[in-house]
């Protein structure tokens, strides 16, 4: 009875479908955009080196940066060999 009343009064409105569309689109674009251009990747790499070098010596040639698609999102995976740690921040 309550259900019927709600339906008549339009209170049981199912989730507006645009919300579903937006959420699906957000995820799909997240994966699409994860396919970053090599230039952007390179510039990200250079910036990472710059920042991390302030705190530790790293093997710049051994640095690997990639995006990996996980089931629930996209992860930025960095593999950075550390040569030595700095005592003070330069």
């Amino acid at each position: 009875m309550l259900e019927f009343l709600q339906r008549v009064l339009g209170l049981d409105k199912p989730t507006a479908s645009k919300k579903v569309a937006k959420e699906r689109l957000r995820l799909v674009l997240f994966h699409d955009r994860a396919d970053m251009s090599p230039q952007i990747m390179q510039s990200l790499k250079e910036d990472l080196i710059k920042v991390i070098s302030e705190y530790m010596d790293i093997d710049k040639s051994g640095l690997e940066v990639s995006l990996s698609n996980e089931s629930d999102g996209v992860a930025l995976v960095c593999n950075i060999p550390v040569l030595s740690l700095k005592r003070t921040v330069s």
């Binding site: 507006a16 479908s17 645009k18 919300k19 569309a21 937006k22 689109l25 957000r26 674009l29």
Partner: peptide, 16 residues
């Protein structure tokens, strides 16, 4: 349809 929430609106698309 936008009014009913069944279609993405202008802001949604600009946002995305």
């Amino acid at each position: 349809m936008v009014k009913k929430g069944d279609m993405m609106d202008i802001d949604d698309m600009i946002d995305i």
